[in-house]
Design a protein around this nucleic acid. Structure first.
Length: 300
DNA sequence: ATAGGGTTATCT
DNA sequence: AGATAACCCTAT
């Protein structure tokens, strides 16, 4: 009987992206037969993969460019027959649909970041992170793995990109640009000029829906967001301070570095409530890195 | 088997 | 009502 609509889960989406990364876009059958992904994608057909990839491309690409205008135009043209484009500025230029360029600075960013980035305390990677979170459009925010995958997908990955990303995420969170809730990052409501509402996000994971009956007020969302900011920041601060203190005690040995990395990975793999563990690991990692090679971290 | 266009279901 | 995502159909 009717299969209503089987929405794609995050795992399936991740598997699809990984599959495309491995085998390339278009090799849907190959991806589907790969034992790595056949487990999570067993309920999907090659056509499903193709369609999903198309949807992902559409949503991830030109939101803020002219792709939206194109789609909007096409939508309107379903009924309207005439195309009145008086200026018709650049529609004919053909879409060189690559905004995935000129990120190269981040590889050598360790040394030449100070050249241009004096006014803003924003380096290239900061913008990348914000862009990733924005384009991912995940209602509950995006976790580090997803953000890393997005950036690695679109751009090219430096060797120790994961560590750099961790450091940057932490910095952005501490400065209030990002909000971290349950291992997921959102863009702070300070820049809530995006569109729509700040969106009250349920702290709980899973796909439960919120009762949409509580739309009584237009002022509460802002307050709620503010509270969330304070809460998240206070939480992190406390955890980080404690973790930093503990980390300094063990930071003497080089082995601690590997240990911290292991802890970070495990904390992330386990979806459990290991927030403290991860905070500890990150703090320890940062501390050690600061002590050993301070120039590895991009300063702005 | 894949790409593209078209249709329906779901959410705001 | 509009927009988006899943689904369906067909030509190559």
């Amino acid at each position: 009987m009717g299969a209503p609509k089987q929405k794609w889960t995050a795992e399936e989406e991740l598997a699809l992206k990984a599959g495309v990364r491995k085998h390339g876009a278009g090799k849907w059958r190959t991806i589907l037969k790969d034992p790595e992904f056949s487990g999570t994608l067993c309920l999907r057909s090659n056509v499903d993969l193709k369609d999903k990839w198309r949807n992902l491309s559409v949503t991830a690409n030109g939101w803020g460019s002219r792709e939206k205008a194109r789609i909007a135009m096409k939508r309107s043209q379903q009924i309207v027959k005439h195309d009145n484009s008086p200026k018709a500025v650049s529609t004919s230029i053909e879409d060189s649909d690559d905004e995935i360029l000129d990120i190269k600075p981040i590889a050598v960013s360790s040394e030449n970041i100070h050249v241009t980035g004096q006014k803003r305390s924003f380096s290239r990677i900061d913008n990348l992170i914000l862009e990733a979170i924005t384009n991912l459009k995940e209602p509950t925010g995006s976790n580090k793995t997803t953000i890393a995958m997005y950036i690695e997908d679109q751009y090219w990955p430096p060797p120790d990109f994961t560590q750099l990303l961790s450091a940057k995420l932490k910095t952005l969170t501490a400065s209030g640009r990002l909000i971290k809730v349950k291992r997921r990052y959102r863009i702070a409501p300070t820049s809530a000029f995006l569109k729509g509402k700040p969106s009250n996000i349920s702290i709980y994971e899973g796909r439960q829906r919120e009762p949409s009956g509580s739309v009584v007020d237009d002022f509460t969302p802002l307050l709620r967001s503010q509270v969330d900011v304070e809460l998240a920041r206070m939480r992190n601060m406390t955890a980080q301070e404690a973790a930093a203190a503990a980390a300094q005690a063990v930071a003497e040995a080089e082995a601690a570095m590997a240990q911290a990395e292991e802890a970070a990975k495990e904390a992330e793999a386990a979806e459990a409530d290991a927030e403290a563990a991860q905070a500890f690991a990150e703090a320890a990692l940062l501390t050690i890195k600061n002590r050993k090679t301070a120039d590895l971290i991009v300063r702005a």
